[in-house]
């Protein structure tokens, strides 16, 4: 990772949150979900950074998380438990 972005000891929170967002969006316990969620979040963050402001990109992924929780709480690829 250090080859493409600067690494600092304070990165932990950011990446923990990002991983959580990806897993929830993709669907807890689903490997396809994690992969597709990662792609979706990654691409949408990049696009949001391009179209809006780069500092707003994480807000976009949190917004996506809230949307998924509202419309499809088990995640895009998760199985409904109930």
């Amino acid at each position: 990772m250090i080859t493409i972005i600067p690494v600092t000891p304070f990165l932990a929170g950011e990446y923990t949150l990002l991983a959580f967002v990806i897993v929830i969006v993709g669907g807890l316990g689903s490997m396809t979900g994690a992969l597709m969620g990662g792609l979706l979040i990654g691409v949408s963050e990049a696009v949001a950074g391009l179209l809006l402001q780069p500092s707003l990109k994480s807000m976009f992924s949190f917004g996506l998380l809230i949307l998924v929780l509202l419309l499809r709480p088990q995640g895009l690829f998760g199985k409904s438990s109930s």
């Binding site: 949150l17 959580f20 967002v21 929830i24 807890l28 500092s55 807000m59 949190f62 809230i66």
Partner: peptide, 20 residues
């Protein structure tokens, strides 16, 4: 822990919103 992370996500979301 899932609920805890959801609350963190919301506060981070709001932090970024207030940034702008």
């Amino acid at each position: 822990v899932y609920f805890a992370l959801l609350t963190i996500a919301f506060s981070e979301f709001t932090r970024l919103a207030f940034d702008h």
